[in-house]
């Protein structure tokens, strides 16, 4: 089964992890089309293919995909859109907001995401299975503590599914429970230690993030995430 992963810099952890565990998933192949920062805005469907709209994005897609400049949906059996829904900071909380405001904020996060935009475009050319996952929760910075939310991450994921992705026939994948601190929207600090940047140049190995990185996760996190996700596509 061939899986196409479209995402941003958070794919770095998955790429590194996939290299480690791919031997255990011999029937699967993963191809990554990832761009750092906000460059994913310059990825769109053109003539039935997901392509970079600028030269630099096309070059980066070529590096992350192992030589491909565009994503031809015909070539894949399943799709994953990873990291393209923004996640809150660890200190954010929804506790002091009304239910209506909370729901509006969650809906906006999904509906206005690059994930929804790209899946919407993809759905005009294929009805193959699509999964979607938000950016990993950040780890609390320094000695900060993470704030609690009114509902669990799983309930929030179900909400995302209902309000935004059912209509796109896409399945929302929750962040693995063992990586999330209680009823917060924060990841345990151990999963960001030693994280690396997304590789965007063929000759240069990905650099490590500076210490104190809170947004990007490491290879171990990527492994847990993939072990959580891959069985779902086999089904």
């Amino acid at each position: 089964m061939k899986v196409c992963v479209v995402g941003n810099s958070h794919c770095g952890a998955l790429i590194e992890a996939w290299r480690q565990i791919c031997g255990s998933w011999a029937d699967l192949s993963l191809t990554f089309f990832a761009t750092p920062g906000t460059k994913i805005r310059n990825v769109a469907l053109r003539d039935g293919k997901l392509v970079g709209l600028t030269d630099d994005v096309r070059e980066i897609l070529k590096v992350t995909s192992g030589g491909l400049q565009e994503c031809d949906p015909e070539q894949y059996d399943s799709f994953l859109f990873y990291g393209l829904i923004k996640s809150p900071k660890a200190e954010h909380t929804d506790v002091k907001y009304s239910a209506a405001v909370r729901e509006a904020a969650l809906t906006d996060r999904c509906v206005e995401s690059n994930a929804a935009r790209l899946i919407g475009q993809l759905r005009t050319v294929t009805d193959k299975p699509v999964s979607v996952a938000a950016a990993p929760f950040r780890v609390p910075a320094g000695t900060d503590t993470a704030s609690a939310w009114t509902c669990s991450h799983e309930e929030e994921t179900a909400f995302f599914q209902r309000v935004a992705f059912d209509k796109l026939s896409a399945s929302v994948i929750a962040q693995p429970k063992e990586t999330v601190i209680g009823q917060t929207r924060a990841t345990f600090a151990e999963f960001s230690t030693g994280s690396k940047r997304l590789q965007v140049e063929t000759e240069r190995a990905p650099k490590a993030h500076p210490s104190g990185e809170v947004s990007h996760m490491n290879c171990r996190y990527g492994e847990i995430w993939l072990e959580h996700y891959l069985p779902t596509i086999r089904k």
Binding site: K86, P88, K89, H92, D94, Y97, A100, V101, R102, A104, A105, L106, D108, R109, E112
Partner: peptide
């Protein structure tokens, strides 16, 4: 503060 993720349109509404 508006909650994380709330769009400009909904921020005005609320």
């Amino acid at each position: 503060k508006r909650p994380f993720g709330l769009s400009d349109e909904n921020a005005k509404k609320f």
